[in-house]
């Protein structure tokens, strides 16, 4: 038996919005510790990894390991039927784990919607992601990162991210011209969520596809801050932390032909 009741049901709605563009089908791996999902996009350029810890649910029950194969587009359609303030409960039985039950309770508990989502067998390989000491770690407002990606898309399909002592610079060059945005590290005691924090081991310069970064910024509503981790010749990590877990996006760097 698997049962997970999420008081902040709106979080699940936002989470689905943040992965559905990148991944079509994925397994939700449910265990005692929580719900995890790892999937690559169709072109195997990006990887999404998300975790919702069991402590974030009330109650959470998972007797044994479950792998629930879900078409994310279908799940997203059903989750659109839940109100933003609804409590969402997910359930799957031992015997008939061929469907996932979802119930949506409104805050007054006088309207309850119940839905069943058919599950599917998904043969997905699970990659192990090693702990990495990154050359540069940047914590910045997520809305600012989204704006930079959106603005530079006007100029080019790719962006070069340069990190040096106290500056992160995003540069795009295209047929119509070029553009760059520099952010200096700042600290705001009153509003720490608005500051730009740069931790640097050594200077980094890497180029990435803006199309994928734009997709990653679908995670913006999940957190006021985004964490960017970069190392030379390594995938970029873009992370949005939530109270009950995280969503991490990995993107392989563009490399010279």
């Amino acid at each position: 038996m698997f049962e997970a009741r999420l008081i902040q049901g709106g979080l699940l709605k936002k989470l689905l919005e943040s992965v559905k563009e990148l991944v079509t089908d994925a397994n939700f791996d449910c265990s005692e510790s929580g719900i995890a999902l790892q999937a690559m996009d169709n072109s195997h350029v990006a990887l999404v990894s998300l975790l919702l810890r069991s402590e974030g649910f009330d109650p959470y029950r998972c007797d044994r390991g479950f792998s629930l194969g879900v078409n994310l587009n279908s799940l997203n359609k059903i989750l659109k039927c839940a109100g933003n303030d609804d409590i969402i409960t997910l359930r799957a039985d031992d015997n008939s784990a061929d469907s996932l039950s979802l119930s949506f309770e409104n805050p007054n508990n006088d309207r309850i919607g119940e839905y069943e989502l058919k599950l599917m067998d998904i043969d997905q390989e699970h990659l192990s992601i090693p702990e990495t000491d990154y050359d540069a770690t940047i914590i910045m407002p997520s809305a600012e990162f989204q704006r930079i990606c959106r603005d530079l898309t006007v100029v080019s399909e790719s962006v070069t991210i340069d990190v040096s002592k106290d500056t992160i610079k995003f540069t795009a060059e295209g047929e119509l011209g070029s553009g760059n945005i520099k952010l200096k590290s700042t600290s705001s005691i009153d509003k720490p969520e608005e500051s730009v924090n740069i931790e640097l081991g050594q200077d980094v310069s890497l180029q990435f596809s803006l199309k994928y970064l734009m997709n990653f910024t679908k995670g913006t509503p999940l957190s006021e801050q985004v964490i960017l981790c970069l190392s030379e010749k390594m995938p970029l990590l873009v992370e949005y932390k939530m109270d009950i877990g995280y969503i991490r996006y990995y993107l392989a760097p563009k490399i010279g032909d």
Binding site: L47, S128, A252, P253, I255
Partner: peptide
């Protein structure tokens, strides 16, 4: 010319 590298070559298969 640039091309986008594959992500799965950076991570280990179990």
């Amino acid at each position: 010319l640039y091309y986008q590298d594959a992500i799965d070559k950076y991570f280990e298969r179990p």
